[in-house]
Computed example of a mutant assay.
Amino acid sequence: MSEPKADSPVHVDSESLRSFVETVLTEGGVADEHAHRVADGLVRADMRGVSSHGVARLEVYMKKFEGGGFNPDPDISVTPIDAAAAMVDADDGPGQSAAYLAMNEAMDLAREAGIGMASVTNSNHFGTAAYYTEYASDEDFIGIAMTNVGSDVIPFGGSKPFLGTNPISVSVPTNRSFPITLDMATSIVAMGRIQEESRREDTEIPSDWAVNEQGEPTTDPHEAVAVRPVGGPKGYGLGVVVDVLCGLLSGVGTSPEIGPLYDDYDQPMRLGHFIAAIDVSAFRDVETFKADVDDYIDQLKAVETREGFDEVKLPGEIETAKYREQAQNGVELQPSTVESLRTLAEYYDVSFPN
């Protein structure tokens, strides 16, 4: 790899990057199976173009593991509730491990009952929700995943943060090379994007993204203390629903009760996830269903485009294209992320991939 300019993105082979992240985690004391799951989740986020939830988070994850806030070797347990539901206790471990196990449990339940649900308690940050729902759609399930997080979002009509960005993802299997995947924060932007991109790059943010301490719009990422709900009252309503399903159903509590990711490194976040899987075969022949989905996609793509658009895209289609591009050409990392990873490489005596 040629030496890039200091302010230029760097492209790293995806498998080498995944191996590097996994090695850093294991050198930091994280058990092998959890290091693998966290590394895979972070790198996949970057490959889909969601860098705010990718390897840029590794530094703060390591602070949480080293500080004791994240359990590096949790005893994650599953308690059956009935034929279609289970409770998963993450034991303060990484959210990636707990949510992935929960989706497996939900799919197993769905194979018997048609739909399976798992409520995850005592968990931590789990990255992108699409990581779990696309895993389910690959197995011909409709996957659903959501999580509450700490208070970063003002309620509609409010001036102080209360809700989390509380993301929701749904993935639907198709016969195409990509599933239909909705993966959205219920805020206009994820706070992580401001923290991991705008602040590090010291770039202005759009005036409708965030508010300052006084509850007024700001374009300065360093002044941003909360973000706005997407779509005003609609996103606010969705954020409330996620808080109920993830926080109150699991018993961990709502967003204001969740611990921070970027502070108090000796304390777990203790948040909740809601994971569900629908077995398509319980309702319809899978291939017939997928053929109907493909026909639906054809109809959407046949819609006449307006000026500035060449094609109607499906939710998740752009991210899939980005994933393939980066699988072939390497994962694009911003200079600030590379600097963070090189610091970790030096600290843990791990070679950064060339």
Rank of each mutant, 00 (worst) to 15 (best):
S2R: 14
S2D: 15
S2E: 15
S2C: 12
E3W: 08
S8E: 15
H11T: 03
V12F: 04
L17D: 11
R18D: 05
G29I: 11
V30M: 10
A31H: 11
E33Q: 12
A35K: 10
G49Y: 02
S51H: 15
A56F: 11
Y61K: 04
K63Q: 12
G69R: 06
P74Q: 12
I81R: 07
A84Q: 06
V88C: 02
A90T: 06
M103K: 04
E134V: 08
G143Y: 14
I144Q: 06
T147K: 09
F156W: 15
L163D: 07
G164S: 01
V170Y: 06
R176N: 05
D183M: 07
M184C: 07
I188M: 09
Q195I: 10
W209N: 04
Q214D: 15
T219S: 13
A226M: 10
V230D: 06
K234V: 12
K234S: 13
G235E: 06
Y236I: 01
C246Q: 03
I258W: 00
I258E: 00
R270W: 11
L271H: 04
D279C: 02
D279H: 07
F283I: 05
T288K: 09
D295T: 14
D298P: 03
L300R: 07
V303E: 13
E311F: 00
V312E: 07
E317V: 02
E325Q: 06
N329C: 02
R342F: 11
T343Q: 12
Y348S: 11
D349I: 03
V350H: 04
